[in-house]
Design a protein around this nucleic acid. Structure first.
Length: 689
DNA sequence: AGCACGCCGACT
DNA sequence: GTCGGCGTGCTC
């Protein structure tokens, strides 16, 4: 007897094989079982999928091959996991098997039954007999939030018929969101459920990891993120899958963790762009968390001081329930926001100063008082471009439409978009002039200038360059915590997550860039970054009042005015009004079709035709859709490849989904008509357009 | 994506 | 005469 099985097979995106494939088996295999199957002339991994609603045609134009091997030792992946993967593959327009295998630990496919048995027998480390932290008392707002989540938890127990809505936990930094998560988690754990906590980047939030581990010392907590070794990732994933782990703390990929007893999902800093995967299947872990929670009828808590406008709008519409924490725990006051108006500052005779006189005075005052300051500058390197004053040459990257950044200490010019690096020329490569000039300012130069402006101050720097070596980030953070640094210079990586208790001043050196950016989400990101940065200061009420300084040419800008008042709702309302009148998300659904080719015209021709096909499909279905002309993104050439993109916009998410699904086969077929096209991809709900 | 098959230059 | 360059085509 031979059974017919549907199997999600690891077929690459470009195969055009989106769904499950048919294979034969002489034994019945439960959906969710891992198998190896022949595909073409090789053998690949697959997951037994649910039988199709309609039986496969018997006269199919291919020979059905038998399953090659079964990994019987692993408990099958459950129906809720399969639903999530199915949904994500469909929504983000990727192959089912491609996505299914991409979100499983890579080591799993190497695991035969014998290896699995060895792993299972290996004695798991006994839980350390550490006394769990006693939870602190909650303030009334926190208690109300916990009660709301608790009622959603019991509603999700299958007893109630109503679905708990997603919960937006809106609270400024320091208002005690984490304590709400911990209490909610405790309740879910007490009910015998597992808890999934998502964070943007795990090494930026060691404090949350520690707090979870201490509070739930008697429970098994595992982490899931790309920094784990393959063996660790497998081990942690298996602990979640078998239900041995009670808590899973992870980055975006953890949204796909198989958790049979899942009872609560928390998405911390839900607005953070790192929740959107930027290559391969471009999924949003936050959006999938909401979908997964609805699908499994469990509560999801989205926490942020500056929620994404999508989330905020849904709360305004009543689709999400908003829980607000307005008070800062421990009576710590919010930092006072001070704007330095460059227009009011006397022009120095020499080159423009990095730090305006009033800010410099404020820094000196902190030095005298033995307090720490943080200066934020979102630009690493010494200077963004090297410039010849006599002929006008600039250090352009030979492979990209971008400047090579001057890294002084390393003595290299480095492109931040490709691997290209060159030694710093002694003389202008174009005219031979020796007077090469570093234009603009990066963190490395700011560090150097501060050393001159503040003699005797201990300056530290934390950015991707200074923390490249393993352990260097932790070492530098430790030095700051230990008080070995007076003034810390950093990129946005320090604005997130870390509490610096002795820090009483945070300054954004040059935040204006995002005010007039072509990226429609730039103001939202800037506001979130500045709010988050402001939250770094003044966490300790005993340190006295803290300040957030902004150096700007536009002190009247509405964004800064809202920031000065710590008024996120006002900022969101004005942004949402702009978005509504511009027909942008959350009032429209977007997808971006991207194409790369050596020759930009090839990518453009492909996109133009693909856009025409999409509009034809939309017309067929009576779906409202606009395909905009193909354009070059701000950095149009990277590593000698020209990039182009085409925006698809619809007032309806469902209509856009329908068109994408219908047009995808057209686009696959179109590829062969455009010789020289390197690759193409769809980005559903893109962050930047 | 792999991994084929398929037609044109420098070697034992 | 072959070994092999990577162009293009297929995978239940």
């Amino acid at each position: 007897m031979s059974l017919r099985l549907r199997i999600a097979v690891e077929t690459p995106q470009h195969s055009g094989l989106a769904g499950a494939l048919d294979y034969a088996s002489d034994q019945a295999l439960a959906p969710g079982t891992l198998v190896r199957v022949p595909l073409g002339r090789r053998e690949v991994c697959g997951v037994v999928w649910d039988p199709a609603d309609e039986p496969a045609p018997t006269d199919a134009g291919w020979a059905v091959k038998p399953v090659a091997a079964v990994l019987g030792g692993l408990p099958p992946l459950g129906p809720s996991w399969r639903r999530l993967v199915s949904f994500a593959a469909g929504y983000y327009q990727r192959g089912l098997g491609e996505l299914a295998l991409a979100v499983l630990p890579p080591e799993l496919r190497l695991l035969d039954d014998a290896a699995l048995e060895r792993r299972r027998r290996r004695k798991r480390r006994a839980a350390t007999a550490v006394e769990a932290d006693r939870p602190p008392p909650l303030n009334p707002e926190q208690a109300a939030a916990v009660a709301a989540i608790a009622s959603a938890l019991s509603a999700g127990d299958g007893l109630a018929t109503t679905q708990p809505p997603p919960l937006l936990l809106h609270g400024v930094t320091g208002s005690g969101k984490t304590e709400v998560y911990l209490h909610a988690a405790a309740q879910a754990l007490a009910a015998g459920r597992q808890v999934l906590v998502l964070v943007p980047e795990i090494n930026l939030t060691p404090q949350l990891t520690e707090r979870l581990a201490r509070r739930f010392a008697d429970r098994r907590l595992v982490t899931l993120h790309s920094g784990l070794t393959p063996a660790q990732r497998l081990q942690h994933w298996l602990a979640a899958h078998t239900g041995e782990a009670d808590l899973v703390l992870g980055t975006r990929l953890a949204i796909f963790a198989s958790m049979p007893r899942l009872g609560l999902i928390v998405v911390d800093e839900e607005h953070d762009p790192s929740y959107k995967q930027q290559e391969g299947a471009r999924y949003s872990a936050r959006d999938l968390a909401v979908w997964r929670a609805q699908s499994e009828r469990l509560p999801v808590v989205l926490g942020s001081a500056t929620p994404s406008l999508e989330t905020w709008q849904r709360a305004d519409e009543g689709r999400y329930r908003r829980l607000t924490l307005a008070a800062r725990v421990g009576a710590a006051a919010l930092p006072r926001v001070r704007l330095v108006d460059w227009n009011q500052c006397p022009k120095p005779k020499g080159p423009p100063s990095a730090i305006a006189p009033p800010l410099l005075d404020a820094l000196r005052l902190r030095l005298q008082r033995g307090e720490q300051s943080l200066l934020l500058l979102n630009r690493r390197g010494y200077a963004p471009v090297l410039h010849c004053t006599s002929c006008g040459w600039k250090s352009g990257c030979p492979h990209c439409s971008a400047w090579q950044v001057f890294h002084k200490a390393e003595r290299v010019l480095r492109c931040h978009h490709c691997a290209a690096a060159a030694r710093v020329p002694q003389a202008c490569p174009q005219c031979g002039d020796l007077d090469l000039h570093a234009m603009g300012r990066g963190t490395e130069r700011l560090e150097e200038q501060l050393a001159e402006l503040l003699p005797g101050a201990r300056i530290g720097r934390i950015d991707a360059d200074s923390t490249r070596a393993k352990g260097e980030l932790q070492a530098r953070l430790q030095a700051v915590h230990a008080g070995e640094v007076d003034v810390l210079v950093g990129t946005q990586m320090v604005a997130k997550g870390h509490d610096f208790r002795r820090m009483t001043l945070v300054a954004a050196v040059n935040p204006d860039g995002a005010l007039f950016s072509s990226d429609f989400r730039a103001p939202e990101r800037l506001f979130a970054l500045l709010m988050q940065a402001a939250g770094r200061a003044g966490r300790d009420a005993a340190m006295g009042p803290s300040e957030m300084w902004l150096q700007t040419w536009h002190p009247q800008h509405a964004l800064y005015a809202a920031l000065r008042d710590h008024d996120y709702p006002r900022f969101a309302a004005t942004q949402l009004a702009d978005r509504r009148s511009a027909g942008l998300p959350p009032f429209a659904s977007l997808a971006l079709l991207r194409a790369d080719a050596r020759d930009g015209a090839v990518a453009e021709a492909f996109l133009t035709e693909a856009g025409r096909q999409a509009e034809a499909r939309a017309a067929e279905a009576g779906a409202a859709l606009i395909a905009y002309p193909a354009v070059a993104p701000p950095i149009s050439r990277v590593a000698d490849t020209e990039r182009r993109q085409l925006l698809l916009e619809s007032p309806s998410r469902a209509a856009l989904q329908h068109v994408l699904r219908a047009a995808l086969p057209d686009w696959h077929a179109l590829r062969s008509q455009h010789r020289g096209l390197a690759r193409w991809a769809v980005d559903v709900d893109p962050l930047a357009i």
